[in-house]
């Protein structure tokens, strides 16, 4: 016979003093779970700026070490009012878009080929490993000889700089695609092209996009280097000129624009991820 035990069976809570005294089990499972705090980043940012502002105003920080943030802001406002900001930003954005598109596009193509073909992998992986650590800025004179002093050499420099990290991220992502999914595709008799298009590429997309975050940041870094090559206008050219004159306000105004550019790129990739990778959630 089954005996029914009611849910309200008496429980002897161990309490009181003496050797029989009860203790509650302490909780020890917390931590290691970064959550979201939207306000932290802006507050930290404002505090840092306020500290520098206070330091420069009181004289603790000499104006040779750091410019006053309010002055930098004023310079930025001037720059925007005079229309110079756009005049510098437009060519830079053009160089960034063209150079990074070429570099990332070729990088994804080559990375996928390395991921798919043994021969390509054997040949290109060592080559890419050899190209990666070359400081692209060191090749600046060569780029001028190869592509001329005009826009082409700037595109090439940025493209070259984004190419290698994109290749490495892409073939890593292709390698990481779940092999059982590929076996599944084969077991249903899918064509090679279908397997690549419907299984390998979507499977590699998360890795490719996170690789692009790094590659595009590198593209922004190289923008300044590219504009060392006889550019009249451009954020990089503006920063270099300010640096040469030791005009800290303008230098920092330019650097701020680059930082904002970095934030915008990161935000855009975040949007693309949310759009294309909604299935991960």
């Amino acid at each position: 016979m089954l005996e029914r035990v009611t849910a309200t069976a008496p429980v002897r809570a161990a309490q009181g003093t003496g050797p029989e005294q009860g203790r509650e089990v302490p909780f020890r499972g917390g931590g290691f779970r970064p959550g979201q705090r939207r306000w932290v980043a802006p507050v930290l940012f404002v505090v840092l700026i306020a500290l520098v502002e206070a330091g420069t105003r009181s004289g603790v920080i000499s104006n040779l070490t750091l410019p006053r943030p309010s002055d930098v802001f004023a310079t930025l406002v001037d720059l925007a009012r005079s229309g110079l900001l756009w005049k510098h930003l437009a060519p830079s954005l053009g160089r960034l878009v063209v150079g990074a598109s070429i570099g990332a596009g070729l990088g994804i193509l080559v990375g996928v080929m390395i991921g798919l073909f043994t021969l390509v992998r054997a040949g290109l992986v060592p080559l890419v490993a050899a190209l990666f650590p070359i400081p692209k800025i060191a090749l600046l004179p060569l780029f001028v000889i190869w592509f001329g002093i005009d826009e082409a050499s700037k595109y090439a420099l940025i493209a070259f700089g984004t190419f290698t990290p994109t290749v490495v991220a892409t073939y890593g992502a292709v390698d990481g695609v779940d092999r059982t999914l590929i076996r599944m595709g084969q077991s249903f008799g899918l064509t090679w092209l279908s397997i690549v298009r419907k299984i390998v590429l979507p499977g590699a997309l998360p890795g490719i996009l996170s690789g692009l975050r790094v590659s595009l940041a590198i593209a922004i870094i190289l923008l300044v280097a590219a504009e060392m090559l006889g550019a009249e206008y451009g954020i990089g050219a503006y920063i270099l000129e300010a640096g040469a004159l030791y005009d800290l306000e303008r230098l920092f105004a330019g650097v701020t624009v680059l930082s904002v550019l970095g934030l915008v790129v990161s935000f855009l990739i975040g949007r693309v991820e949310r759009l294309l990778l909604a299935w991960r959630a």
């Binding site: 249903f188 279908s194 299935w279």
Partner: peptide, 22 residues
Amino acid sequence: FQDFALLPWRTVAGNVSLALED
């Protein structure tokens, strides 16, 4: 397969459709 081998980026209907599309 033991681990189902479904494409996580396709819906239920999309996963079935995969076997038919070629």
